[in-house]
Write a protein that binds this DNA or RNA. Structure first.
Length: 569
RNA sequence: CGGGGUGUGGCGCAGUUGGUUAGCGCGCAGCGUUUGGGACGCUGAGGCCGGAGGUUCGAGUCCUCUCACCCCGACCA
């Protein structure tokens, strides 16, 4: 492709809209164009990158035994009502009415449709297992699209769904996908980290995410430096410090004027925070919930939401707390009724805690779980932080950030039961099909690749996903034969099947070099009167500082070698 | 949905207490001189100042409403 003919222009200045690097560079490189919040057009350079990523993914899916198919974007809302996931997605689901006033949804994902499809074509254990996938556009009305391509409302995603007879089969499919995913990121040239993930309110039991580590990542990752544990902070667990409160003592009121925070109370009474009981109030699907946790710990909202099995969860306002009859800052789970109580598992494990007294300026000492109050739910709802202890080995956990570039779930039979996908086993008995699902967002992967690979000049594409492999950069001068030689080189490279972006513009060297750097093409080949004096061309890798002069006659083979070397290493 | 911010040629911005033909840089077009890290000169094209309503002799500027986009939070496979 000749740059003079390429659709899309580079921009020197950083668009004011863009905050994160990948967004800025995608815009400056003329790769994407925003149409609406979270909706983009993809120009030829971006499209080529997406196609390369797509082909790598497709290849790995096929190798793992996946069969590609295509599914509708337009889906009847009833299908979503069958599983109740219309509620789980809530406003995130784009819906519309057709001319007959029937409700339709734009697919945010395709479990419902594919499960229904499978129910029509799988009746027997002989039809299983199956791995089916599609690479298609999906729609989600995100509350807040952000970060350019990181979080959008219309996006292309590869989703594979596995259908197995039983858990053992699912385990196998799941392992296959973990392996395939690792290969995908490796082949794209992007280091990834596998972490345990939250599977959401309706998800199955097990779930993992593939993270591309970068500081601009939306997700906090908690991991053990020994490598035996890594999890999204949303679900990370830790070994909680054991606090010995001694034998249960009688309840005792104590005046604590104005001491409304854990900090205040522990300081005032001269005890550590871990000897206090922290009360936090939430509204879960409209219901007021009283949450208690040991004073030195914080509540993880996601874990709490999972424990409550609710769709919507938020902190209660002070007014709501007062309306409920509680005293903010001095609330206690002791002797209250009609309010659901959730306790972190640290609470039953610790004795003689200081809690509120449900009256102003007063706390009670020696609150003991079971004797003084019980919770409706006891669960681990602790927010884990760097410095806590690894659940596997006890070492200090660390924290980093990453972009979620893939998410795999063991769905189990929830979906197949609701959408009626059953099979008959050898004994003629009917069972729901055991499912898994495995997604990768292509645009996000592209953006994450840039977040991981750039410098102050521009993008540095890993060769396997670069829009072009070679940037052929002649520096013309009228009285020389650069033009003739570079045209010949261009067609030779193309004949070898090498993807060349040929900067045939009559621009100054500075402009060309800067554009080459901005676009991030891995191999830059400069031909100029200066190199031709030595009968050579200059080859420079975008990822490296130095360049090398290579004899013109060897240029093509040298470039081929560089490409092969990069793709096998 | 709550909080904050921004809307002025393709991009980045300026525009005073309201005052005449709305500016600058980049980019774009033409001509000429240039060519190893975003060259220079000359000439030129390109604007319902986000939209609607209002105040006023007069509105990019003031008032009201509205829309869009961005950021933080809520939310989110």
């Amino acid at each position: 492709m000749r740059v003079s003919e390429l659709f899309g222009k580079t921009q020197r200045e950083i668009p004011a809209e863009a905050d994160i690097v990948s967004h800025q560079l995608l815009l400056r490189a003329g790769m994407i164009n925003q149409v609406s919040a979270g909706v983009y057009s993809y120009l030829p350079l971006a499209w080529r990158v997406l196609k390369k990523i797509e082909n790598i993914i497709r290849d790995e899916m096929n190798k793992a035994g996946g069969q590609e198919l295509t599914l509708p974007v337009l889906q009847p809302l009833e299908l979503w009502q069958e599983t109740g996931r219309d509620k789980a997605f809530g406003k995130g689901l784009f819906t519309l009415l057709d001319r007959r006033e029937r409700n339709l949804a734009l697919g945010p994902t395709h479990e419902e449709v594919i499960t229904q499809l499978v129910s029509h074509h799988v009746q027997s254990y002989r039809d299983l297992p199956k791995l089916l996938y599609q690479i298609q556009v999906k729609f989600r009305d995100e509350p807040r699209p952000r970060g350019g391509l990181i979080r959008v409302r219309e996006f292309t995603m590869k989703d594979l769904y596995s259908f197995d007879m039983d858990e053992a089969g699912l385990d196998k499919s799941y392992q296959k996908m973990l392996h395939a995913y690792k290969n995908i990121y490796d082949r794209c040239g992007l280091p990834s980290m596998l972490v345990e993930a939250d599977s959401g309110a309706i998800g199955g039991k097990e779930s993992h995410e593939f993270m591309l580590l970068t500081e601009s990542g939306e997700n906090e990752i908690i991991y053990c430096p020994t490598g035996d544990y890594a999890a999204n902070a949303e679900r990370a667990e830790s070994v909680k410090e054991k606090i010995d409160g001694g034998e249960p003592l009688p309840l005792e009121e104590v005046a604590t004027p104005g001491m409304t925070s854990i900090e205040d109370v522990s300081g005032f009474l001269g005890i550590s925070r871990s000897h206090t009981l922290k009360a936090v109030f939430y509204i879960a699907d409209g219901e007021f919930v009283f949450v208690v946790i040991r004073g030195d710990l914080d509540v993880n909202d996601i874990k709490l939401q999972n424990a409550l099995h609710c769709y919507e969860l938020r902190l209660a306002t002070e007014e709501e707390v007062i309306e409920t009859g509680l005293v903010p800052g001095f609330a206690s789970p002791v002797r209250i009724s009609g309010i659901r109580i959730v306790a972190d598992d640290s609470v039953p494990a610790t004795s003689n805690l200081v809690s509120g007294a449900n009256k102003p300026d007063t706390h009670i000492k020696n609150t003991n779980y079971s004797r003084d109050f019980v919770a409706d739910i006891v669960a681990d709802i602790t927010l884990v932080e760097a410095g806590d202890s690894c659940p596997k080995c006890g070492n200090k956990l660390e924290s980093t950030r990453g972009i979620e570039a893939g998410h795999v779930f063991k769905l189990g039979t929830f979906q197949s039961e609701k959408n009626g996908a059953y099979y008959v086993d050898e004994n003629g008995e009917s069972h729901p099909i055991v499912m898994g699902c495995y997604g990768i967002g292509l645009g996000r992967l592209m953006a994450a690749a840039i977040e991981q690979n750039h410098d102050d000049k521009g993008i540095i594409w890993p060769l396997p996903i670069a829009p072009y492999q070679v940037y052929l950069c002649p520096l013309y001068r009228e009285d020389t034969n650069v033009s003739e030689i570079v045209e010949k080189l261009y067609s030779e490279l193309e004949n070898e099947g090498i993807e060349v972006l040929f900067d045939d513009r009559k621009e100054s060297p500075g402009v060309k070099f800067n554009d080459a750097d901005l676009l991030g093409i891995p191999i830059r080949v400069t031909v100029s009167p200066r190199t031709l004096e030595k009968d050579s061309v200059e080859i420079k890798l975008r990822s490296e500082k130095d360049s090398a002069l290579v004899p013109l006659a060897e240029a093509v083979t040298r470039i081929k070698k560089t490409i092969e070397g990069a793709s096998t290493s």
